[in-house]
C-alpha cells in the first residue's frame, strides 16, 4: 500500500510563496479531493510531488521515497497535469506507446487504457483532431498506463461533457475501491463532493483543512430542517417560543437552522400544527467551503497599508 506524504513543503517563486509549509497525506483506498481557488498552489504541489519542480524546503514522498528515485515511475504513480501534453501531430496510440516503452510497460496496456477511457475507436487519429474532453481522456489514459498504485489528477473534469463527468466520478471511486491512493484537484465543490471521501483544502499555498468530507461539512455547518404548513403563524410562534432560529422563505416554507428533523417533527406534532412537508437539509460542501474561506479571510485580514 503506497501513500503520498507531503511534509512542510514550501515553494517560492521570486520571493512569492506558492506553497507554504504544506503538510498532508494521501492514503490508499480513498479519493482525496484537493480543493482551493485558482492560484492556491494545487498544481505547484502536484509538480513538486512528481519531482518536476524543486521545493524551496520540505519533502514530498511516495511510499517513503522521492519520486525521482523511483524505478520505472509510471508503474508506481500515474499523473495527469496538462491535457495539452500530447503532441497534436501524433496519434493517441503512438503517444501512449512511447510512454509505455520508456517505463517497460507491456504493450497490451496501451489498448487496455484506450478501451477504459473510451478512446479505442479514435486511437489512430491525430491528437490535433481531438476535443478538449478527448484530450483530457487521453491524459487520464496516460496516467493509468502503468496500472499505478498512486494516481494524481489535476482538474480531470475540465472539458468533459456531462457523460464524461459521470464517467470520471465512477472511475475515481473504482480506483480507490481497488486500494489505490487517488489525489484529485478541483475548484468545483459540488463535483468534488460527488467523488471524494477525504478533503485537503488549500488557500494561498497554506493548508486550510485536512478531513473526511462528512466530518468537514458537519464541523462547519449544522443541518437544517425545511418545513411547510397550512398555518404559518402558529408554526412561526411555536418555533420562536422554543428558541429555534427559523425564517420563512418567499414560497411560504420555513427553514430552521441548526436543527434536526427528529426534534422539529416531535415539537410540531405535540403542538398539533398541521405539517405538509418536513425535510432534513444537509449542508453542501460548497457552503462549508465558503464558511471556511470567510472565516479564513477574517482571520488573515491584514490592516491595509496606505
Amino acid at each position: 500500500m503506497t501513500s503520498i506524504d507531503v511534509r512542510d513543503l514550501t515553494k517560492e517563486y521570486g520571493g512569492r510563496r506558492a506553497v507554504d509549509r504544506l503538510t498532508f497525506g494521501v492514503r490508499p483506498g480513498h479519493v482525496t479531493g484537493f480543493l482551493g481557488p485558482n492560484g492556491a498552489g494545487k498544481s505547484t504541489t502536484m509538480r513538486l510531488v512528481l519531482g518536476l519542480d524543486r521545493p524551496t524546503s520540505g519533502t514530498a514522498t511516495i511510499g517513503g521515497r522521492a519520486y525521482t528515485e523511483l524505478r520505472d515511475p509510471l508503474r508506481r504513480v500515474g499523473a495527469l497535469l496538462d491535457a495539452g501534453a500530447a503532441h497534436g501531430s501524433r496519434s493517441a496510440r503512438d503517444h501512449l506507446r512511447a510512454l509505455a516503452v520508456s517505463n517497460r510497460i507491456p504493450a497490451h496496456r496501451v489498448d487496455t487504457v484506450l478501451e477504459r477511457t473510451g478512446l479505442a475507436a479514435v486511437a489512430r487519429r491525430r491528437v490535433r483532431t481531438f476535443s478538449l474532453g478527448m484530450r483530457q481522456r487521453l491524459g487520464i489514459a496516460a496516467a493509468l498506463l502503468g496500472d499505478p498504485e498512486v494516481v494524481l489528477l489535476d482538474e480531470p473534469a475540465n472539458g468533459l461533457d456531462p457523460e464524461g463527468i459521470v464517467w470520471i466520478r465512477t472511475l475515481l471511486r473504482d480506483l480507490a475501491a481497488q486500494g489505490r491512493a487517488v489525489l484529485v484537484s478541483s475548484h468545483l465543490m459540488n463535483e468534488t463532493a460527488a467523488f471524494a471521501d477525504h478533503l485537503v483544502i488549500v488557500g494561498r499555498g497554506r493548508l486550510l483543512a485536512d478531513a473526511p468530507v462528512r466530518e468537514f461539512i458537519h464541523a462547519r455547518l449544522r443541518p437544517r430542517v425545511r418545513i411547510r404548513t397550512t398555518d404559518p403563524a402558529a408554526l412561526g410562534g411555536l418555533l420562536t417560543r422554543h428558541g429555534h432560529d427559523a425564517s420563512q422563505d418567499a414560497d411560504g416554507t420555513w427553514t430552521v437552522r441548526h436543527a434536526r428533523v427528529d426534534d422539529i417533527g416531535r415539537l410540531v406534532a405535540r403542538a398539533g400544527v398541521p405539517v405538509l412537508e418536513l425535510t432534513a437539509q444537509e449542508a453542501t460542501l460548497e457552503e462549508a467551503y465558503l464558511d471556511l474561506t470567510a472565516a479564513e479571510a477574517e482571520f488573515t485580514a491584514q490592516p491595509q497599508e496606505a
Binding site: 509538480r47 519531482g51 518536476l52 525521482t68 515511475p73 499523473a79 497535469l81 495539452g84 503532441h87 520508456s102
Partner: peptide
C-alpha cells in the same frame, strides 16, 4: 516538441533522470 503544452512534464514524469 517537448517544450509545448506541458509535454516536458509528462516526459520527465516518465523519465525523472
Amino acid at each position: 516538441s517537448e517544450f509545448r503544452g506541458g509535454a516536458l512534464r509528462l516526459t520527465l514524469a516518465a523519465v525523472p533522470d
